[in-house]
Design a protein around this nucleic acid. Sequence first.
DNA 1: ATACTTTACCTAGAATGTCTACTCGAGATG
DNA 2: CATCTCGAGTAGACATTCTAGGTAAAGTAT
Lengths: 119, 119
Amino acid sequence: MSTRDVDRIELLQGTLDLLILRTLLLGPLHGHAIAKSIERNSEDVLAVEQGSLYPALHRLLKRGWISSEEGTSENNRRAKFYRLTAKGRRQLRAESAKWERLARAIGRILRPAGEEGRL
Amino acid sequence: MSTRDVDRIELLQGTLDLLILRTLLLGPLHGHAIAKSIERNSEDVLAVEQGSLYPALHRLLKRGWISSEEGTSENNRRAKFYRLTAKGRRQLRAESAKWERLARAIGRILRPAGEEGRL
DNA sequence: ATACTTTACCTAGAATGTCTACTCGAGATG
DNA sequence: CATCTCGAGTAGACATTCTAGGTAAAGTAT
């Protein structure tokens, strides 16, 4: 119960896959480490719940976007290391582009050109 | 079946409420017009399906974020005009802030500082 | 040895919100 | 009259996240 989960944000549906794929672009990681990486890199804005994480990893595995391998963690515990596949790399590019498009589109609605200082 | 619904993007869960509230900040509109406004202002990236729109409007009504009033549309048809309430205005501010926070957090993951030109 | 905490993985079921695929009525148009 | 468009609406499927559990093994303290 650290003091920092005060105002974390719940994820929007569909964004977790993208975050995981992007995180694995830097190299293979086990599940727990993926979650912590996302939380750290988002400056603790994003919280990745285990109940979301593992289903997501299995989903990505089944779709062939990542592969898994048994191993041992930094803390000497059994862990599954996930690695981005070539297919996953393509998927990452597609989803990144889609996110950018979406974020820009929503931005245009929230801050229309020619409307300033209001609200 | 216009040619422009080729590469529209499906909405992320939770974003529609925000888009509707923001659209109504400019003044009351009926449902159909809200959808068209969002599509236009997003430069046709966002598609607002009727099956998403009306449930969303009823949801917002029930939460007291908007109010409705019978009226007549520009095309002389019966229509329900929705108006942002004071509570809805507060909600809009909260959701806008949350969106910005989230979009920035995801941006930090997709484009970490100190990593350029890769991928 | 024993207890407790942390790490890492996992799952079932609820909740949420969007989508597809319809229906319906009324005004406009030919 | 038939047809089209506008505007509102619903049911049910679907996908994903969350809550709230659980397991096992390693480290730590007593």
